[in-house]
């Protein structure tokens, strides 16, 4: 079970958090302009990386804040956490 360093609260048990899927998928500003395929790309297509993955997490049983996490899915190592709107610290 992970020990997650919430950017607002500090280190907490994973059981306090909820995973929220891939990070940095921006909701299109003008959905009506998009073709079915373009909209489907936003709506359905998600990466499933073995290795470094950018994820959204929510401290649901804590401060309820959403934040981003960089995690190596091959060994579950959390490389970094950062607030929404901040640039990912690692590439």
């Amino acid at each position: 079970m992970f020990l997650i360093n919430c950017p607002f609260c500090g280190e907490r048990e994973q059981s306090e958090f909820k995973a929220g899927g891939e990070a940095h998928i921006v909701r299109p500003k003008q959905p009506t302009e998009l073709s079915d395929d373009q909209w489907a790309e936003y709506l359905f297509m998600r990466k499933n990386i073995k290795g470094i993955q950018f994820e959204r997490w929510n401290h649901i049983h804590g401060c309820r804040k959403w934040f981003n996490m960089v995690r190596d899915t091959s060994n579950d190592e959390i490389k970094a956490v950062y607030k929404m709107g901040e640039k990912p610290p690692v590439k």
Binding site: K18, G20, V26, R27, R56, N58, I60, R64, K65, W66, M84, G85
Partner: peptide
Amino acid sequence: LGKLEDYLQTEWP
């Protein structure tokens, strides 16, 4: 509530 907060915090801050 969770969904509304999600949009407020991440899409429409």
